[in-house]
């Protein structure tokens, strides 16, 4: 098993090579819709919860439409989860106003906003990961360039992605050599870890330099070119228009609340 399998970076590229209607959509259309999605989800007030639920529809449609298995997406969401937890963890202690009572349980504003942060994180991280998995990093980078993102950022993004593999590979080699010579001891002193990290950094930099030279040797000038540049089709426009309309509806009215009200109104 290679280092890249270990952290499953390569898995996203594998998924991006599938051929589904979702994969065939123009990368620019998917980027525009995903950015709009993230913007709208983040714009809800801090305690919003039920109004956010219809937005789950977008990442799920991307994931199922592109036939992406849930496993890799969930794993990566869990990997980033501590950051979202760190952002919201103090809210329940800071905001103790009761805002909702379900039977004997009183829910405070802090818990509501903490849950809202987690839901937003799940939605936005899920959508961004689904976007990468059904588009691929090279197509994404090329589309960002076409959308007017400065070339220096696009190239940074592409190199960041490429060097993740490099660092993972080097990290794997260093860890293996430590394990082989640590005689089963699990805890090594801080000094050893310090020099390991330094070593990993230097090795990765050397390797990154060699990769960069190989790219320059084949005429790389900062612009990402694709073998089959995408032609915009009517379906790409429909994809953008349809989702933007849905997001506008979801932002203006609480669709979940409305549906519940309608259902409870009809069924006594």
């Amino acid at each position: 098993m290679g280092a890249t399998d270990w952290i499953e970076i390569g898995r996203m590229d594998d998924l991006a090579r599938l051929d589904t209607p979702m994969h065939r959509l123009d990368a620019r259309a998917k980027i525009i819709v995903t950015l709009a999605f993230i913007g709208v989800v983040m714009s809800f007030p801090p305690h919003a919860l039920s109004a956010l639920t219809p937005f789950l529809f977008f990442p799920l449609v991307l994931i199922y439409g592109a036939r992406i298995p849930m496993g890799p997406i969930v794993k990566k969401i869990l990997l980033a989860m501590p950051f979202a937890l760190a952002v919201g963890i103090f809210n329940p202690f800071l905001d103790r106003r009761p805002v909702l009572a379900i039977g004997p349980v009183t829910i405070t504003g802090g818990w509501m906003s903490f849950t809202s942060i987690l839901v937003r994180f799940l939605l936005t991280a899920g959508a961004a990961l689904a976007l990468v998995a059904c588009t691929g990093m090279v197509r994404l980078a090329s589309a960002l360039g076409q959308l007017g993102v400065p070339r220096v950022f696009v190239v940074q993004l592409l190199f960041l992605h490429r060097y993740l593999f490099v660092v993972a590979q080097e990290g794997r080699n260093v860890l293996r050599s430590v394990t082989l010579r640590s005689s089963g001891t699990r805890s090594l002193n801080l000094g050893v870890y310090g020099s390991l990290t330094g070593n990993l950094l230097l090795r990765s930099m050397d390797r990154a330099t060699r990769v960069y030279r190989a790219m320059m040797a084949r005429g790389f000038d900062g612009e990402i070119r694709l073998v089959h540049p995408h032609q915009v089709r009517w379906i790409d426009g429909a994809f953008i228009a349809g989702w933007l309309a849905f997001f506008a509806l979801g932002r203006t009215w609480n669709l979940a609340g409305g549906l519940g009200h309608w259902l409870t109104g009809v069924i006594p």
């Binding site: 590229d13 991006a16 090279v138 790219m215 005429g219 070119r225 694709l226 073998v227």
Partner: peptide
């Protein structure tokens, strides 16, 4: 030397540039 997601993408990299 190989940095693109597929072999074909890698071989095409130079001619595209």
């Amino acid at each position: 030397q190989l940095f693109m997601p597929t072999v074909a993408g890698d071989v095409a990299f130079g001619p595209l540039n």
